[in-house]
Design a protein around this nucleic acid. Structure first.
Lengths: 196, 196
DNA sequence: GTCTATACCGAGATAGAC
DNA sequence: GTCTATCTCGGTATAGAC
């Protein structure tokens, strides 16, 4: 999931803070970065961060809201009328496009579940469900088209597929190679049916 | 992945420290717990932890080595001569057996990749490869038996399957329901082949 | 091997000048 | 809105008694 919206040239301090916070969370997790780290990245002092986000949890909340909105837009930008497989490929690109040391921010925060306040937990669940529902619709279409394999019902398949994507991102960073995301894609799409 | 080896009744302080550290890492991540937390769980003072593990990284190393050994033993304990599907089911139980708020410790540490020293990174890669190779062998057998679906080659399928398991654990904790691991199992195993 | 006491630093957070 | 200065707390880590 690209964080490239980061900053074209000049953005408000607040926007820069959110963008860099997203990057830091994706790389190091919520407990893995400090206001000092963030301040250095943006080029301000820590007191300035506190002006925009009094508590660290406020920053987190803003980062999650912005990230979710961004991804939701990207998801909606994938044309519903395209063949299911092509939609899936575009979906996978949302992940592969980001730097090798960054995984999906919400996947990362799901790992930090215990450290995160309730509102963020709710947002994370919503994020997961959004993706699972989106994938379920695509899988259902692909099933009709005969281009996507569906084990059991589409919703269940979608949950497994999304889990596979998140896990693949984790492994991609671990092994410094993001072809694992593509492997998930291949596992889902019908190619040459091999005899059981 | 059960951390149940924790302590039958009395174990050496060192062993208790390792066991509880594993639990804390699985729940909160490497940056999410302190020596104070661990000390309270075990019932000692933080200075005692430093006696056994001078640096926090030493504790981490020990926790990873022990965890890996434990899981490796559990993996070897699954009889090679069993049908592939049954081996897979036993494998899944390694995950489902653990408390809902704990995911696989090495999956968690993979998320904390950036915060972790090189030797631990190497151990994590080895852990992933161990599982992927084990799964690849099972999948290859299941393919021959006609009981397991293999998209592309078994190695690639195994990587995707392992990613799906790790992602499913993440989602299980998020939604407080670990049936997602079972869903992965169902996705892999052949049941009623539904027409594409 | 475990404790008390303490050093030391980095964290999140606040006050108030500019 | 950003800064300097400062506070407080919690974190890792050490020294030395028992």
């Amino acid at each position: 999931m690209a964080t490239s919206v980061t900053s074209s040239a000049c953005a408000s301090t607040r926007d820069q803070l959110i963008a860099h916070a997203q990057t830091l969370i994706s790389k190091r997790g919520y407990n893995g970065f400090s206001y000092r780290d963030l301040a250095e990245h943006v080029g301000v002092k820590t007191a300035s961060i506190h002006y925009h986000f009094p508590q660290k949890d406020d920053l987190l909340q803003a980062a999650v809201v912005d990230y979710t909105a961004k991804i939701t837009r990207a998801l909606h930008a994938i044309d519903d009328s395209l063949p299911a497989v092509e939609r899936l490929e575009r979906y996978a690109k949302l992940f592969v496009g980001s730097p090798a040391d960054q995984i999906c921010m919400c996947g990362m925060l799901a790992a930090d579940f215990a450290s995160v306040p309730e509102p963020v937990r709710a947002a994370l669940k919503a994020f997961f469900r959004l993706h699972e529902n989106w994938l379920a619709a695509v899988i259902a279409d692909g099933k009709r088209e005969g281009t996507i394999k569906s084990w059991s019902d589409p919703q269940s398949s979608a949950r497994t597929a999304f889990a596979a994507f998140q896990g693949a991102l984790l492994a991609s960073r671990l092994f410094q190679a993001n072809d694992r995301v593509c492997e998930v894609l291949q596992a889902i799409c019908v190619r040459v049916e091999q005899p059981a």
